[in-house]
């Protein structure tokens, strides 16, 4: 009897969770209970990091400082040029009567080192609803797009990486603006551009950027580079593999982006829109 109730409840939960999002509050409430456990698992890693920082020698720190200084100088110089280009871009766009927003609001989140389901690509972040994180929020690192937020809990959130088999990302080639959809394969370092015809103008090494279609990801963020293009005349579409630019399995800190906003949250605007295929 109890078995029947539990099995039915499970099936009901799964159906509701898969089709609609009514159970997000239940999940968030339970996540708060689970969070101390995850935090406890994460604590030794955090302590280890703190310890390496604390025990770093003076020389190593000076060397790092030196390196960062040079890097900052380089980036500053490049940024100066970028500012100029952005201003020019704005001016030109004004001439074309279309507006574009540069400079999205971002927040640095730390990746909590806990393992999730091994058959999907997810990571856990230490920022949640209390920091205005919202469902579907884009996630980037210094090199490119990482994924989007799936579940928001008060203190933490989980994000789906772009390599998850259930994730699809609208992209375009930077060189010629050819649009495509980058679907995760489940492998750590592979994305696939689906439904590109055999004669599509795709060259190995092309930069792939987000197209902004679907309204979930801001346009123009780098996604990766074309790794291989296989054309088989027997197949209707070419098999195009993209290598993600973001360091999906390595980074400790990631950036949460509020697209097109420099101030207040914009939950309503991005709550709906393109649906994730999972």
């Amino acid at each position: 009897m109890r078995l029947l109730v539990c099995v039915l409840a499970s099936v009901l939960f799964m159906t509701v969770d898969h089709r609609r999002h009514h159970l997000e509050t239940v999940r968030a409430a339970m996540a708060v209970i689970v969070y101390p456990l995850q935090f406890a698992v994460h604590a030794p890693f955090r302590g280890g990091k703190w310890l390496t920082d604390a025990l770093a020698t003076r020389r190593a720190l000076r060397e790092e400082n030196e390196r960062l200084r040079t890097q900052q100088l380089l980036i500053q110089a490049r940024l100066g040029k970028y500012e100029e280009l952005a201003a020019e871009n704005r001016r030109l766009r004004k001439l074309l009567d279309s507006s574009v927003k540069v400079g999205d609001r971002v927040l640095i989140a730390e990746v909590v080192s806990v393992d999730m389901d091994p058959f999907s690509r997810q990571i856990m972040l230490n920022k949640g609803g209390n920091d205005e994180v919202f469902r579907g929020q884009p996630l980037i690192d210094a090199h490119g797009v990482m994924g989007q937020v799936m579940h928001v809990n008060p203190l933490s959130s989980t994000a789906l990486l772009i390599t998850d088999p259930g994730h699809a990302l609208p992209v375009q080639l930077n060189r010629n603006g050819l649009r495509a959809v980058a679907v995760g394969t489940g492998a750590t370092s592979d994305l696939e551009l689906t439904h590109l015809p055999n004669n599509a103008d795709v060259v190995v090494g092309d930069l792939v950027v987000t197209s902004g279609l679907g309204g979930r990801f801001p346009s123009g963020y780098p996604v990766g580079r074309i790794l291989s293009v296989e054309t088989d005349t027997g197949q209707p579409f070419a098999k195009v593999i993209v290598e993600p630019a973001a360091q999906l399995e390595r980074n400790r800190e990631v950036l949460l982006v509020w697209p097109g906003k420099e101030g207040a949250s914009n939950k309503a605007q991005y709550a709906e829109g393109q649906e994730v295929r999972s």
Binding site: C6, S10, V11, L12, F13, M14, L23
Partner: peptide
């Protein structure tokens, strides 16, 4: 909730 799967799968 811990592993981020569909609510009810492990249940």
């Amino acid at each position: 909730v811990l592993t981020g799967t569909l609510l009810g799968q492990h249940a």
